[in-house]
Structure formats: C-alpha cells, structure tokens
Design a protein around this nucleic acid. Structure first.
Length: 339
DNA sequence: GTCCTAACGTATGCCTGCTT
DNA sequence: AAGCAGGCATACGTTAGGAC
C-alpha cells in the first residue's frame, strides 16, 4: 500500500514551496524564485526526455541519472557556466533534503542525488571605475531638469556608498540623516543593517534633492522614484547608469571600453577607498561585508586587472541561443510559475 | 523615451565543518 | 584555535517584450 496517489511529486513540490521554504525555513524571496526556476527546468527536461506526460510525472522519475542528465544538458546544450550548473544543483539538493525527511520511502533515491557533487569554479576579474571616470559620469548629467537632478543624486549616492543596487532602490527617506554626521542606513544582503557615512558633497546633493522632491524625512516613502512615481527598481537603476556612462564616454573615452553595471560602482568605491589608504576593516564595514576576507579580494584586484588585460587579448566570446523545442506544460509547472 | 516584468544566466558572500 | 574551502543562499546582469 504505497500508492503515490494523488501524485507524490506534485504534492511534495507544493508543500516544499508553500510550507517548508517560506514558513519553516523563512528563506528570502530570491531563493524561492531561484528554486522555482530550477524545478520548472528540471521537470520539463525529465518529462520530455522520458517521453512522459508531465501531468502524471512521479517522484521516481527524478532519478539520480535523470538529474545528472539534466546537469549535463545545462552545460552541453544550454551552454551554461559551471556557476549556473551549481546553482541548479544547490536547488535540487535542497528539494531532495526535504524529500528525504518527508518521504522516507524515497530515502535512497534522495541520498544518491545529494551525493552528486558541485563542480569547481574559477573566480574572474573585478572591474571598476577610476576616480576621474566616476567624476566624468557624474558631471555629464544634465542637472537643469528635475529628472537629471534625481539621476545626479541617485548616482552620487551609489558611488559614495558603494551599495548594492537593491540596497539603493530600497532606500526610504527616513534612512537618510543629513545633519552632521551625514549618513545613510542600508539594509543589505542577508537582511543585515548597516550605517554608511556620506561625503559632505553627497549630503549636500541629497539635501537639495530631498527638498525639491518635498520628501518627509521621517516617513518611509521611497527615496528614489521613477517617472510614474513608483519606487525605482534595480532594472531602472541599471538603465539610468548605462545611459549616463554612455553619454560620459563621449568626453571620457576610457569609459567606452568598459562594461559597467551598478555593481561596478561597488567595486569602484572599494578601490577608491583602498587607494586613499582606508583600512580594509573599515572598507568592510562600509560595504557591509561580514568578513574582511571578502574585502581582501579587492586588494589584489589592481594587480589582477593588469594581468587579465594581457590575457584577454585573444579571447572571443560567442553566445549561442539554445533551442527551446522541449517546452511543455504541466499543472505542477503551471503552479510553480505562479510563485 | 523611460522604465518595468519575466525568464534565464551568473556572481557574491555567509556559514559550517574540516584541516592544520 | 585559526585558517580555509565547499556548500549554499541570495544577490546581480542581460535580454526580450511591453506599458505608459
């Protein structure tokens, strides 16, 4: 009497997401979305490769061999990097740890999947802006419009704090303290809170900006809004930065060669502080790193940059879009997509 | 033109447990 | 005890398509 009615897989997937991850583990939404994407990809792959009706797919179909084939498919056919493969595997492990405790009859299967190892990865280079390049980006912003003044305040904040994109757009008016000492409270990765000092010049810019925007500095109204009056998103921030860099490149040609995104600002601030002789421990606090070891990576970045520049000479990047012919839908997959 | 959502891909950085 | 690396959670980047 071990009927898997009504479909052990569907039931397990649902309880994994709606009860276990959110209620019991309390993981972040990013994690839920990442796991969801992985499960959707995995289930579609298994259903297609086994010529099975996705709707009646059972847990037994997700064998260790099927998981290995999936990982292989990611690398070979979708041309995923090792880090992506490992992210997918981490999600599959998390799911089968849950399976092991909630469906003991599947213990052996789960254990074998949990035994599939991660692949080694290599860490790349750290790209950043020089001080004069930062200045060029800021100075090219047309501050005669309120739109431009918002962008100026936004990017000044970004380069001053070296904050993550999400931290910047999450900022509320009340997180800002513009009296001496000027500082800003940031809520970072892993739901941690830290206070970051503001340069007097940045504080002045923000003061003008908040007065013009008529912000109530005690309220938790968004500090930076888009043109529709909603809170800016990280995509919006990326868009604004790339626009500004693009126009700054006219006067500062070295910018044209760099691929810049909001996280580059983080690296730039770290390097600026480092070159100004600020101690690593203090930069750690500034950036919101728990461990100085993390920050220490920047210390070797300068040297590494030069080394990589030489190595890059003949490198060719080719991106191939993989076929998506195996797409198909099932009720579990549909449900996952609603998360 | 300005930005958002969705989907997919990839990098970052904390924690834990092992090694030295 | 300290240092380190692996495992994992959680962030960021890119692109297509679309709303305003």
């Amino acid at each position: 009497m071990r009927s898997s009615y009504p479909n052990t897989l569907a039931r397990t997937v649902r309880s994994f997401f709606s009860e276990y991850l959110t209620e019991q583990r309390g993981v972040s939404r990013h994690t839920v979305l990442s796991y969801r994407d992985t499960l959707i990809l995995l289930l579609r792959f298994v259903a297609t490769s086994q010529h099975h009706d996705p709707a009646t797919l059972d847990l037994t179909a997700i064998s260790p061999e099927a998981v290995l084939a999936f990982l292989n498919y990611l690398e070979q056919e979708r041309h995923n990097k090792t880090s992506s493969r490992n992210v997918r595997l981490a999600a599959i492990h998390a799911f089968f740890r849950y399976v092991a405790t909630h469906a003991p009859e599947r213990m052996e299967q789960a254990q074998r999947i949990l035994g599939i190892p991660f692949k080694r990865t290599r860490t790349g280079t750290i790209d950043y802006l020089e001080e004069d390049e930062i200045r060029a980006v800021l100075e090219c912003i047309d501050r005669s419009t309120s739109h431009g003044r918002r962008n100026y305040a936004l990017l000044s904040m970004l380069f001053n704090t070296g904050a993550r994109a999400q931290e910047i757009v999450d900022l509320n008016a009340c997180d800002l303290q513009l009296d001496t000492p000027p500082q800003v409270t940031l809520f970072g990765k892993g739901r941690k809170r830290r206070i970051c000092p503001l340069w007097p010049q940045t504080a002045q810019v923000l003061k003008q900006f908040s007065e013009e925007a008529q912000l109530d500095m005690r309220s938790n109204t968004p500090l930076f809004r888009n043109q529709r009056g909603q809170r800016l998103t990280r995509f919006g921030l990326g868009y604004i930065l790339s626009k500004c860099v693009q126009s700054a490149a006219v006067k500062c040609p070295s910018l044209a060669k760099k691929r810049l995104h909001p996280h580059s600002a983080r690296h730039s601030t770290a390097m600026l502080l480092l070159k100004s002789g600020v101690a690593l421990v203090d930069i750690s606090h500034w950036l919101g790193h728990v461990s100085v070891n993390t920050t220490n990576r920047y210390a070797s970045a300068d040297l590494e940059m030069k080394r990589q520049a030489i190595a890059r000479a003949g490198a060719l990047a080719n991106s191939v879009t993989p076929p998506r012919s195996w797409r198909c839908d099932t009720s579990v997959i549909e449900w996952l997509a609603t998360l």
